Simulated assay, not measured.
Amino acid sequence: MLPQPSVSVCIPVYNGERFLAETIRSVLDQTYRDFELVLLENASTDGSMEVIRSFADPRIRVERNATTLSQPDNWNRVIELCRAPLIKLVCADDLLHPRCLELQVGPMEADPGLAVVAARRHMIDEQSRVIVPRRGLGGLLGVRTGVEVARKVVRNGANPIGEAGGVLFRRDHFFAAGGWRSDRRLIMDLDMWLRLLQYGEFLGQPETLAAFRIGRGSVSAENEQAIYEEQRLFTEELGESPYFQVRGIDLAIGRMLAPAGRARRQALFAISRFNARKQDRTAAAELAD
């Protein structure tokens, strides 16, 4: 058994062969070196396992499910497989900036009162081109209490913190909070960040340290209406929580701005689809020539 690393980066993989190699390289290229990379292959039917086997790095540990688990169950299992006290989950089509771990591990190790460190991220398309740069964390930079974050989330009407790739958290807090929830499948990340913030404070970083890919077949793109509904119900739950002390004015603003948050998501999906169709036409024209 290798010595325990400081950080576990984990990638749950299901039919991810198209972007997986780029994602793995973005992890292995980190300037911070004391990490393990745990790859959990969820009984894919494509060539994901062949992509994984093409990498030879002692920091990589590969596990495989005998049968395909649901996304929440698979994400919970990949965290269970991690050995380090600090965790970063990266989806199999997203990317990390080379300094992501370097800039996020330091604050977590220096301040045991931090439960979540989050950075801004780029929104990218299927060709890894930036659709929207430096997205997220509006009004959430610096150290914030859970109450401050909850009020901002409610007012935002969407997810101002961002997806898993831009966030670092503590393994013990994750299990204390109960893990990823199957009844929050479409907003699992946001739901988890708020539950983690019952164990410590939040640090929002101004740097852009991750990239979230919006593809034609992504869960977000295919479930936009359901995401909107889950987000709305989650906002109302936060408003009823005695811990987070969300005010009536926060809820009123959130209800008013929720359609705008939905419109922003729809615009991102539309841009990604347009870019993908344009790329398909270009490729077809090149073949015809």
Rank of each mutant, 00 (worst) to 15 (best):
L2Y: 11
Q4V: 15
V7Q: 08
S8M: 00
V9N: 01
Y14M: 11
N15L: 07
S26A: 03
L28V: 08
F35G: 04
L39M: 09
L40G: 01
L40D: 03
N42F: 01
I52Y: 02
A56F: 10
R61A: 12
R61W: 09
A66Y: 05
T67D: 12
N74A: 15
N76S: 08
L81M: 08
C82Y: 02
R83K: 14
L86Y: 11
I87W: 01
D93H: 07
D94V: 07
L96W: 11
E102H: 13
L103G: 01
P107Q: 08
P107H: 06
A115Q: 02
A119G: 09
H122C: 04
Q127M: 13
S128Q: 15
G136E: 03
G136D: 06
G136P: 07
G139Q: 03
L141W: 09
E148K: 03
R151D: 00
K152P: 00
V153M: 07
A158C: 11
P160K: 04
I161S: 00
E163N: 13
A164E: 10
F169T: 06
R171D: 07
F174I: 06
F175V: 09
R181V: 07
R185E: 14
I187H: 01
L190E: 09
L190K: 03
L194K: 01
Y199P: 03
F202D: 00
S220A: 13
E229P: 02
E230I: 05
F234R: 07
P242I: 10
Q245W: 00
Q245S: 06
G248I: 02
G254S: 03
R264S: 13
Q266H: 10
A267L: 14
L268I: 14
F269S: 12
R273V: 09
Q279R: 13
D280V: 08
T282D: 13
A285P: 02
E286Y: 12
